[in-house]
Structures are given as C-alpha cells and as structure tokens.
C-alpha cells in the first residue's frame, strides 16, 4: 500500500455515504430490537402503568410482579400454578429428544457416508425428502401410531415425534459433514482391527464436535419452540412450555395482564437464547466448515 493511502486510513473520515450506511444499520437494528425492548419493558411494569403509559416509555416503578406471577401463579386454563411446571415439562421432553435425534443422526450419517450399501443413496434421498414434509401432514398418522404404541399424550410420545421428525435434518447435517472426512482414516482403522462401533466411538465421534454443536442448537431451538406437535400430541399436565404460554395469554380473568404475558414469553424464549449465547459461534463455524469442504 502506498503511504498517502495509509495515512488517509488513519484519519476518521466521515463522508456522507458512510454516515448513511451507519444510520441505516442503526435503524435496522433498532427496528429488530424494538419488540424485545417493548416486551422487556412491559414485563417490569405494573398493570396500571401499562394502561396509562406509552408502549415505549420506561416503567414508573420497576417491579417483578409480572415475572413472579408468570412463573408460579398465573392461570393457564383451569389451573393457576404459573408456567414453572411446563418449563420443567419442556426440559424433560427437549433433552432426550435432542440427545437421541442427534446421536441417531450421527449414526445415520456415519453409515450413509462411510459404509455405503446398495440403495444407500436412495435412502438418503428419501430421508432428505422428509425435511420438506410439513408438520401438518403427519399429524393424523402420527396420532394413530402413538395410539397403537400406547404412548399418546405422554412425554415419551412427544419425544418420539420430535426424534422422528428431526432425524431427517440431523442425518443430513452429519452425512454431509462426514462426507468431507477422508475415507482412508476409516480404512486404516479397519485394518487396525476396529469394528463398526469402535470406529464410530473412538474416531468419528471425537472428530464431530462442530457438527454436533450445529445439530444440538438446531434441534434444541426447533423442539423447544415447537407449538403444533406440543398442542396436538400432549394433554393437560404434560404440555410443553409453548402450549402453556398460549393458554396463559388466552386465559382472561378480568383485566388483561400484559406484564405477566410478556414475562412468560421471555421465560419461554430464555433457554434458546442461552444456547445461542453459549454455542452460537460453533453454529456459524460448523455450518461453513461443512460448506467449504463439502
């Protein structure tokens, strides 16, 4: 680089164009953050404050009433125990659903890329097709299947639904990631005497950390945020958080308590936010790593 240019770059040059770019970026960010802003502010207000104040104004007094009520005493339909129980329901459902679908996806991907058999490409194609099946299509047959299996309206049933539906995605992720692993490593391990599962546990899985992160985030977000399967395949005390949130918002006894609704919404979104903060960097990294090599 020539010297004048270097010198130039050091000075803070505020041109009209640059100003425009920053202004647009800030405006866009503000636009996207606005709902979160409103939700958070409203959740700390009192009901009186909400009625009299402006949507964007700060609370007159910061109170936790909305949060406490949402957590432990708000009414969701007939029961009035808040959403804490449903929060636990969702956790108990999401953890095994994510773990099982991720593990099975890894195993599927391993077979489909390293242990090809006649028709394995066709099978993968069909699995891929599963990614494009809308939720609504499988509701009735799935309800019937769960009935046959005797796990209708149970957490186990909901876990099964999510595992089956998620398998297409997790298999796709792992298969494409493993496609980029050198096949000679597997050959070497076979000559070293390792079998199918030894190779999987000792060599393939330890190399899968980035794609495991991607899959876990993807599955966790999808399953935690799912409403349709939750509302259809569970009932009463087994319902997940999202369904409870809906019930809470739709249950009106007297005045509408927006602060409770908002607090409950933030509580419902908290786990997915947390997962993104903790593992988000792996998400982009894992996805692009696969994209470049594959």
């Amino acid at each position: 680089m020539r010297n004048p240019a270097l010198h130039h770059a050091k000075l803070p040059t505020v041109t009209l164009g640059r100003l425009f770019i920053y202004a647009s970026l800030i405006a866009m960010a503000a636009l996207y953050l606005m709902p979160l802003w409103v939700v958070l502010l409203t959740s700390f207000k009192t009901t009186a404050d909400i009625r009299t104040g402006n949507l964007l104004s700060l609370p007159d007094v910061w109170v936790l009433d909305g949060w406490l009520k949402a957590w432990s005493s708000a009414c969701t339909g007939v029961s009035c125990n808040g959403i804490s129980g449903y929060f636990i329901n969702s956790s108990v459902m999401v953890l095994p659903a994510v773990a099982i679908s991720t593990l099975l996806g890894a195993l599927n991907g391993y077979v489909l890329s390293m242990w090809r058999f006649k028709g394995s490409e066709l099978l993968f194609g069909l699995l891929l097709f599963g990614c494009f099946i809308p939720f609504q299509v499988i509701l009735l047959p799935m309800a019937q299947t769960l009935g046959w299996l005797g796990i209708a309206n149970t957490t186990a049933g909901l876990v099964l639904v999510h595992v089956i539906y998620g398998l297409c995605f997790t298999t796709l992720f792992f298969r494409n990631y493993y496609q980029a692993l050198p096949g000679e490593i597997i050959k070497a391990a076979r000559l070293d005497g390792a079998g199918f599962f030894t190779i999987f546990w000792r060599i393939v899985l330890p190399l899968s950390r980035p794609i495991i992160m991607v899959t876990v985030i993807w599955q966790f977000t999808a399953i935690w945020n799912d409403f349709l399967f939750g509302v259809v395949f569970s009932a009463g005390d087994n319902q997940p958080m999202t369904v409870a949130l809906n019930n809470l918002v739709n249950t009106t006894t007297g005045a509408k308590e927006y602060n409770v609704d908002m607090a409950a919404a933030v509580l419902a979104a908290l786990p997915t936010l947390l997962v993104y903060f903790v593992a988000g960097k792996y998400f982009v990294r894992g996805l692009t790593a696969g994209a470049i090599k594959g």
Partner: peptide
C-alpha cells in the same frame, strides 16, 4: 476374510492418521 482378520498393515498416501 475381513481386513481385521488378515494381519496385514497398510500405509496410505494421505497417511490417514487419526487426527483426534
């Protein structure tokens, strides 16, 4: 016979070392 039962070792062009 499967590879493990042959008692044959192989050195690969890419070395195929286990990266982990």
């Amino acid at each position: 016979a499967p590879p493990a039962a042959r008692d044959i070792a192989m050195v690969f062009q890419s070395y195929a070392l286990y990266p982990n």
